[in-house]
């Protein structure tokens, strides 16, 4: 009898947790559902309706493409550059005898603590002077610099765990240093590389502050389009939902795939620090 009531109590808690999860996710779910409705069907809100791709076809025929292109190019190039510069740096910090490597690591991290407003004005003036305002290059430069510390911070915790024996063995077997780096070290920190790359992609894709301040027309990315859609296009809820879905989906999928690696990266770097 007692066991029976305990089971009921457990089930009630679990149902409550399910409801809580759905409630928390509701704004995203609602946007997602609305994006498959026609404008006329948006109000009043309904759960049952005939899904249509109408708003997507309108949105995809509109001026969204340049923004998508900018976002994709800026994000991809930033992630690549950040990895190419960040991984050797954290490798150097962990394995090479660099004086004050702790201080350099701390310096890297501290640059990320700086509020973006602290550097936005001079960056604007400098890029203006170099004629790079409103260009993808400017965005890529800034995002790369912001992303490198993330890559260093996240790959470091994986590099530290590589047993030195493996590197000694490689040396005895006559494996060159370059080969060791590419064929032994990189595969061992695959998880760190993926999770930092995903984090960089998510942050860059979503960043609004620099995209807003360093671009006007040509290099604007999706977050800026998102912010100005209502004032430019007027009130079209289904279209707005379709655009929001397009903007949300890539980082959501990447985030969901990588959540385990992400938590490990975030907490390992800090908790064991």
């Amino acid at each position: 009898m007692i066991r029976y009531s305990k089971k009921i109590k457990q089930s009630i808690i679990i149902i409550f947790i399910y409801l809580l999860g759905i409630l928390y996710f509701f704004p995203i779910l609602y946007t997602f559902l609305t994006s498959f409705k026609t404008e006329a069907n948006v109000v009043p809100p309904s759960i049952f309706f005939i899904p249509t791709l109408e708003s997507y076809s309108i949105v995809l025929k509109s001026k969204i493409w340049p923004y998508v292109e900018n976002s994709v190019i800026v994000t991809t190039v930033t992630a690549l550059l950040a990895l190419v510069m960040g991984i050797p740096a954290s490798y150097n910090l962990v394995f090479s005898k660099i004086k004050k490597s702790q201080n350099i690591l701390f310096w890297f991290i501290s640059t990320n603590l700086l509020p973006p407003v602290a550097i936005a004005i001079p960056l604007f003036l400098i890029f203006n002077y170099l004629n790079l305002l409103d260009s993808r290059v400017a965005l890529i430069i800034v995002y790369t610099a912001i992303s490198i510390p993330i890559v260093v911070w996240m790959t470091r915790s994986f590099l530290v765990e590589i047993p030195r024996d493996i590197l000694e063995a490689a040396s005895i077997d006559g494996c060159t240093k370059l080969r060791t780096f590419f064929y032994i070290i990189l595969p061992l920190i695959k998880m760190g590389i993926t999770s930092s790359a995903l984090l960089v992609i998510i942050f860059t894709w979503n960043d609004f502050f620099f995209a807003l301040n360093l671009t006007y027309v040509n290099a604007q990315t999706l977050p800026v389009y998102m912010a100005t859609f209502m004032t430019k296009q007027g009130f079209f809820w289904a279209q707005l939902s379709a655009i929001s879905t397009i903007c949300m989906l890539p980082p959501l999928i990447l985030g969901w795939i990588s959540q385990k690696a992400l938590v490990r990266g975030l907490t390992m770097g800090a908790v064991k620090g």
Binding site: Y24, F25, N206, F208, P223, V224, M226, G255
Partner: peptide, 9 residues
């Protein structure tokens, strides 16, 4: 999920 959604969205 909300953690991965852009501010402006």
């Amino acid at each position: 999920a909300p953690f991965f959604v852009m501010d402006t969205a």
